[in-house]
């Protein structure tokens, strides 16, 4: 009575097949990551040393370290964050907590999605035209960081808005009905309960900003400067651009040097992502609902 019929067996076979296919696709997804990281570690690890991290390149980039590029990347990321986080978080707060559902709001949302889809090289040209030439910033950290900020703004807005909207509506209603204004509600209830998501979004933005090459190419990155940047109007070296340069432009660069730079770059990005994930897990543990 309870034995399998041929129909049961066929259903079961199909279900196993589906599971196997989906598993295979998941593996296909993971393989490139493992190969990339593996190759970088194997080929790049010999180049890594304290000296590599903390000295400048020498002999036409064929020897020495990456210190100015490392410092430059930090400058670029920090200045880009200073520009994009306040704007992005404020915009997300407006869109999530204040904006009425009308044509203007829908247009703005559409614009944000489109901004996220603009290729980075187009952002680079925009940054060159707007910041370098029109606002006369010249090729500088400021111009490059602002270009990066414009590019990553949609990421900040979308991540912030998502974490704001994850705060249950009942909390807002509770506040409003005790006579709290929208701003009091945001400050006392919405922000404290969404800050983990917002910070996660910001850290993800950092990792993306650190790895971008195209937007800084025309706007502030340079192949070689002998000194560290002293202010936002200096040009700077950057990890991503440095990698591009030694891999394609410079001659006689030893292979392990190139892979070493790539390894450091990807390590920075992965570390950022790990911090972001760890942070999210930690803060989710603190959540009380």
């Amino acid at each position: 009575m309870f034995t399998a019929t041929p129909l049961n067996r066929r259903s079961y076979r199909n279900q196993s097949l589906a599971k196997a296919v989906f598993f295979l696709m998941t593996v296909v997804l993971v393989i490139p990551v493992l190969l990339i990281v593996g190759t970088l570690v194997v080929k790049g690890a010999p180049a890594i040393s304290w000296e590599f991290l903390f000295t400048a390149p020498t002999d036409n980039m064929t020897a020495g370290g990456i210190f100015p590029a490392l410092v430059g990347t930090i400058w670029l990321v920090v200045v880009a964050l200073l520009a994009s986080v306040p704007v992005g978080v404020a915009a997300a707060l407006y869109l999530s907590e204040y904006a009425p559902d009308n044509l203007l709001t829908r247009t703005i949302n559409l614009a944000i999605i489109n901004l996220a889809g603009v290729p980075s090289i187009v952002h680079a040209l925009f940054g060159f035209g707007a910041f370098v030439l029109f606002f006369r910033m010249g090729q500088s950290i400021l111009a490059a960081s602002l270009t990066l900020a414009v590019m990553t703004l949609p990421v900040v807005i979308v991540a912030t808005r998502e974490s704001l909207q994850a705060v249950p509506q009942a909390f807002r209603e509770a506040c409003w009905n005790m006579g709290a204004t929208r701003w009091q509600t945001i400050r006392k209830v919405v922000l404290p309960n969404s800050i983990s998501g917002i910070l996660t979004g910001v850290i993800l933005e950092v990792s993306r900003t650190a790895g971008e090459t195209a937007p800084i190419m025309f706007t502030g990155a340079t192949a070689f400067v002998a000194f560290l940047p002293e202010g936002v109007l200096d040009q700077t070296m950057a990890m991503s651009y440095h990698l591009y340069y030694i891999a394609t432009q410079a001659t006689n660069v030893p292979e392990e040097l190139t892979f070493g730079v790539a390894l450091v770059l990807i390590a920075i990005v992965l570390m950022m992502n790990a911090v972001s994930i760890g942070f999210r897990v930690y803060l989710r543990g603190l959540k009380k609902w």
Binding site: A174, G179, K287
Partner: peptide
Amino acid sequence: QVRKQIGMVFQRPNPLP
């Protein structure tokens, strides 16, 4: 001021976290 004078209790309890 209206909300101060008139308290409201909802179907589902909604304490703040």
